[in-house]
Structures are given as structure tokens and as C-alpha cells.
Write a protein that binds this DNA or RNA. Structure first.
Length: 153
DNA sequence: GCCAACGTTGGC
DNA sequence: GCCAACGTTGGC
């Protein structure tokens, strides 16, 4: 069964285009420091699909699509003192945090804005709208299909 | 830049 | 284990 996810990123820091321009169009999805989000990271399987969501920007919304290309592994940035994601309470023998690799598949022709998602009654139960601060979350099959059918340009 | 929502920390 | 204080996220 294919899993569907939504991954938030601030485009000023790392956008869908940055993912596209990464070597092999692939990047670590590192720096998640929230247990609920981390637990979802650990549930991800290779070839699961994800919306890449741009947050904290002029038009927040779904900007593109990616695939999980490597399942969860210990997040190296948690144990790197030079990383801004360094975690004092983690060390190489006990790393609290996990990351996956994701590979760019598509930049949408237009952002599917948060405003549009909010205004669609069919998406009232979308996790994004119920838990606005979660940075990694599952997307129900029915929501994924609806968004792809109705809003993907 | 404000601030509501909410996750985390740490004293007790 | 409670909860106040604090820090962060992210829309507006």
C-alpha cells in the first residue's frame, strides 16, 4: 500500500527547486526535531509519495511532489556540533532523531495554496488544517487523490 | 512584526 | 506526574 505524506519546508531555506537542483535530485530530509513528526518519518517507505509544502512565505501551499528514496536512518545533523540542527541530548550511540532521503519528481505548474485547501469542504479533515504546526504528516489516500485530481495543474 | 497554538523543559 | 514558563512555528 502506497503511503502519502506532506513535508513542510521554508522555501527561503530549501525550496522544491533546491530539491530539483540537488545531486540526483535527491536530498536528505534532515532537521526534524519534533517527536510526532519523527515518528511519521520512521513510518515512511521507499517509493511513498509526498507533497512538498512551502511554509512561512508569501503564498504558503503545496509546491511540488517528491518520492521517498531511502527509508529512515539516524539524522547525522543531530550529532554534528557544526550543524544548526545539532542536538545536545543526542550522540552517535544514541541519536534521538531520524531522517529520510527524498527525490524530486515534479514542480507543480502553480502552488496549491493553503487558502485553496482551506476553502474546500472535501479537505476539512486534512491533517495540515487540523495540526498546523506539524512539519511531517500523513495524507489520507482520499485527500491525496482529491488534491491531485482537482488542483494539480 | 504580531500573536495564537502548542510542544518542551524543569522545578516541585 | 503536574503545570508554569518558555521557545518555536507559521499564518496573517
Amino acid at each position: 500500500m502506497m503511503g502519502y505524506w506532506l513535508l513542510k519546508t521554508e522555501p527561503n531555506t530549501f525550496s522544491i527547486e533546491d530539491l530539483k537542483n540537488s545531486p540526483s535530485r535527491t536530498s536528505m530530509w534532515e532537521g526534524v526535531r519534533n517527536y510526532q513528526a519523527r515518528n511519521f518519518i520512521r513510518e515512511m517507505r521507499v517509493d511513498d509519495e509526498a507533497f512538498i509544502y512551502h511554509s512561512s512565505c508569501k503564498v504558503p501551499g503545496i509546491a511540488g511532489l517528491a518520492k521517498v528514496s531511502r527509508a529512515a536512518y539516524p539524522d547525522p545533523t543531530a550529532v554534528d556540533p557544526d550543524s544548526s540542527y545539532f542536538d545536545l541530548k543526542s550522540d552517535p550511540d544514541n541519536n534521538r532523531w531520524s531522517c529520510v532521503d527524498v527525490t524530486w519528481t515534479e514542480t507543480l505548474a502553480g502552488i496549491i495554496s493553503l487558502g485553496v485547501l482551506k476553502s474546500d469542504p472535501a479537505l476539512a479533515d486534512l491533517t495540515l488544517l487540523k495540526h498546523s504546526r506539524l512539519s511531517v504528516m500523513p495524507v489520507a489516500d482520499v485527500h491525496w487523490q482529491h488534491i491531485m485530481d482537482v488542483y494539480r495543474l
